[in-house]
Amino acid sequence: MDTDHVETPGLRELTRDLVSTPSHDDPTAAGDAIEAWLRAETDATVERDDHGNVFGRVGDPAAPTLALVGHHDVVPPGDPQVETDGDGGERYVLEERDGRLYGRGSADMKGAVAAAMSAVRDADPDGVELCFASFVGEEVGGVGARAAIDDGFAPAFAVVGEGSTNYSGEGVTDVVVAHKGRRASTLVARGESTHASIPEEGVNAVYRACDAVDVVREMAFPETTVMGESVRGSVAVTEIDGGSAWNVVPDRCEVTVDERTVPGERAPLADAEAVEGVEWTVEQDLPPMACSDDAFADAALDAARGVQTGTPEHVVKPHATDAGWLANAGTACVICGAAESGEAHTDTESVSYEVLDRCYRIYRAVAEGASAFA
């Protein structure tokens, strides 16, 4: 797949070490491993903040900052992905075959974290401070990224190492210039309970909820365009819960709504409150991302094109990442990483070693060619 493919020194070993370290309940051990490696193997100024995020910086601290961003927490492993070690603790099962590493977190996203760490070790940044950042809590709503931003983390540019491989075509690592966000909300309809034999003496909350669902059903999906790429969101009612017994008119009914948001556009879900007795509440709002700097997005694509025989493209990712929080805070973001669509969060999660080497070279090329955008 790659032109003149060369194995990155130490990358496979580092990836195996990070992937084998459990980090679904507590990411501390994985953070320890990252911090220790950066201190031993790089000239970076290394910091571990109070939240557990790990940073390593090289280059001119007075220059604009280019961040290589990842996360070292993972979703809980499946039964085939965990085993007991010799001390009675847990470790993640690793398996290598056909040039791939299998294990929880290999694709999402410790492989890309290892590639970024290796790039920080080897790169000679061109007119930027190069910052490696690995966050905690990405899988539970961007907890680490949000805390870091609140503490002042504000790089001018960021390459977020979430998956972008095989989006435009098989064997190609693309550059994501936009992704959808997710807004989870509820519509709660309230009525007045009565015996089902005399429904006219009550107010049926389920009927009010159904009227609100009809409002949602008629909403157009949010959509926009980012750098010529179409981004189309969605709105869907996913759950409905109301009533307490077959012979009681319900006085409460709750409807769950999943909205995939796009940059700059939202569905007008508050319109459902026009139905009497209905209240709309946002439960979670993961922001979408749109790259705010064309020159940076083009430079990242040029770097990706320079290290592979395929033809990568600017593409759109369907789900939210920490890039949304960074972009929302003013950082120009792209996403480029080894994970392929459908690999993350599965019991057969894996990553290609060859693509990890490719990502290393992309990250290094972006840093060493930063004068094109910084």
Results as ranks from 00 to 15, higher is better:
3 T>A: 13
9 P>K: 10
10 G>H: 09
15 T>Y: 02
19 V>F: 04
20 S>E: 15
21 T>Q: 06
22 P>D: 10
22 P>T: 11
24 H>I: 02
26 D>K: 05
27 P>N: 09
29 A>G: 08
33 A>F: 01
44 A>F: 05
45 T>D: 12
48 R>G: 04
50 D>G: 15
54 V>A: 06
57 R>I: 05
63 A>D: 01
67 A>E: 01
67 A>P: 04
68 L>Y: 02
70 G>V: 00
71 H>I: 01
71 H>V: 01
73 D>V: 00
77 P>V: 11
82 V>S: 07
83 E>L: 04
84 T>I: 02
86 G>A: 09
92 Y>H: 11
101 L>N: 00
102 Y>M: 10
104 R>G: 13
106 S>R: 11
107 A>Y: 00
111 G>Q: 04
113 V>I: 13
115 A>Y: 03
116 A>P: 05
119 A>Q: 00
119 A>P: 04
122 D>N: 13
123 A>P: 07
124 D>G: 12
126 D>I: 12
130 L>C: 05
130 L>W: 03
133 A>E: 09
134 S>D: 01
135 F>P: 00
135 F>M: 01
139 E>M: 00
143 V>F: 12
147 A>N: 08
149 I>A: 08
149 I>S: 07
151 D>W: 10
152 G>W: 00
153 F>T: 02
153 F>P: 08
162 E>F: 02
163 G>E: 03
165 T>E: 10
168 S>H: 04
168 S>V: 05
170 E>H: 07
170 E>I: 02
171 G>S: 12
172 V>I: 08
175 V>N: 09
176 V>P: 04
177 V>H: 03
182 R>M: 06
182 R>W: 10
185 S>F: 11
189 A>K: 08
190 R>H: 14
191 G>E: 09
191 G>Q: 07
191 G>I: 06
193 S>V: 10
197 S>P: 07
197 S>W: 06
198 I>H: 15
200 E>T: 14
201 E>G: 12
203 V>N: 13
204 N>R: 09
206 V>F: 08
207 Y>D: 14
226 V>P: 09
229 E>F: 09
231 V>M: 05
236 A>V: 13
236 A>H: 14
237 V>K: 11
238 T>V: 08
242 G>Y: 10
245 A>K: 12
247 N>P: 15
248 V>W: 14
252 R>H: 10
257 V>N: 13
258 D>G: 11
260 R>A: 06
260 R>C: 08
261 T>K: 11
262 V>H: 08
262 V>N: 12
269 L>K: 13
269 L>D: 11
277 G>V: 12
279 E>M: 11
283 E>W: 05
283 E>C: 11
285 D>E: 09
287 P>W: 07
288 P>C: 04
291 C>S: 15
292 S>K: 09
293 D>F: 01
297 A>D: 04
298 D>Y: 04
298 D>H: 01
304 A>F: 11
308 Q>P: 07
310 G>W: 06
310 G>T: 06
312 P>T: 05
317 K>E: 11
319 H>Y: 15
319 H>M: 14
321 T>W: 08
323 A>E: 07
326 L>I: 06
332 A>K: 06
334 V>T: 02
335 I>A: 05
341 S>T: 15
347 D>K: 13
348 T>P: 03
350 S>W: 12
350 S>N: 15
350 S>H: 14
352 S>I: 07
352 S>Q: 03
357 D>M: 03
359 C>Q: 15
359 C>W: 13
360 Y>P: 03
362 I>M: 15
370 A>I: 01
374 A>F: 04
